[in-house]
Nucleic acid binder design. Structure first.
Lengths: 112, 112
DNA sequence: CATTCATATGAATATCTGTTCATATGATAG
DNA sequence: CTATCATATGAACAGATATTCATATGAATG
C-alpha cells in the first residue's frame, strides 16, 4: 500500500454507514440469497399459505420449510396466524416486494 | 399433507417464476449478503477506487478484497479500468444502487 | 532485464448454512 | 384422555463460503 489515496479514503469514510448498519443490511439481503426462501416469499406474494401447502408447492420437507419460515419470521419478513391446527404465513409488509422487484429489474436489464 | 389446498397451489404455481429465474434472483441477492461485499459496493457508490484503497478502507487484506472483487466482477456488479499498475473498480450500473437502497429503506422502516 | 509495486489466483482451512431425521408441541375430534 | 393432524425444533451432517497464506502475473522504472 505505497501509493497515496488519503483524499478519497477520507471522503468515502465520511459517507459510509456504520458497521452496524452495513451488517444489518447484508443480513437482510442474505435472507433473499437462498432459492428456497426467495421462492417462499414469491409464493406468499400471491397469497397467504399454510406450511404444508408451501412444502407441497416446493416439493420439500415440511421440516425444511418450517426451518426457513422461522428464519423469515425472526427477520420480520413474514407474519403468521393460527387457524386450528393450521398456521398460515403471509408477507409482513410490502418492502419485501419492493426489494425483490428491485432485484428482478436488475435481472431483466441484464438479459437484454 | 392431508388437508386440501389445490386451489391455492394452482394459482400460485401459475404466477411463480421459473426455477431458473428464482435461482438467478437469489444468486444476485447472495452477492449483497456479505458485509465485505456490501461495504465495497457502498464505497464505490461514492467514487471509483483502487484495490489497495478499498483494502485500507476496510482494514482487510489485499487478497481478501481481490477475491471479493472477482466475485462482484463476475456478476457484472462492478467494472474496472487499469491505469498503469493500479486497477480502479467502479459500480457497473445504478441498478446496484437501487437494490441497496431498497434494502436500506426497509431497514429504516424497521427502526421506526 | 532485474526489481519493485499493484493486483490476481490457487489451495487449504475454518466457519457458516441448509437439509434431514427424529422427536416434541399444540390443537382438534372422537 | 387418546389418537391424529399440522407444525416446530434440536442435533447431526454435508456442502458452501470467506479468509489466509504463498505465489504468480503484469506493468513501470531505473
Amino acid at each position: 500500500m505505497k501509493h497515496d489515496h488519503e483524499g478519497i479514503l477520507k471522503r468515502v469514510r465520511y459517507d459510509l454507514p456504520t458497521d452496524e448498519v452495513l451488517t444489518d443490511l447484508s443480513s437482510l439481503f442474505k435472507l433473499f440469497g437462498d432459492t428456497t426462501r426467495t421462492k417462499i416469499l414469491f409464493s406468499l406474494f400471491e397469497s397467504e399459505m399454510c406450511v404444508c401447502a408451501i412444502a407441497e408447492l416446493m416439493g420439500m420437507t415440511q421440516s425444511a420449510i418450517s426451518h426457513q419460515l422461522k428464519v423469515l419470521k425472526d427477520a420480520n419478513l413474514v407474519g403468521f396466524r393460527r387457524e386450528g391446527k393450521t398456521v398460515y404465513y403471509f408477507l409482513a409488509d410490502d418492502h419485501v416486494c419492493k426489494i425483490i422487484i428491485s432485484g428482478f429489474e436488475h435481472l431483466l436489464e441484464e438479459r437484454k
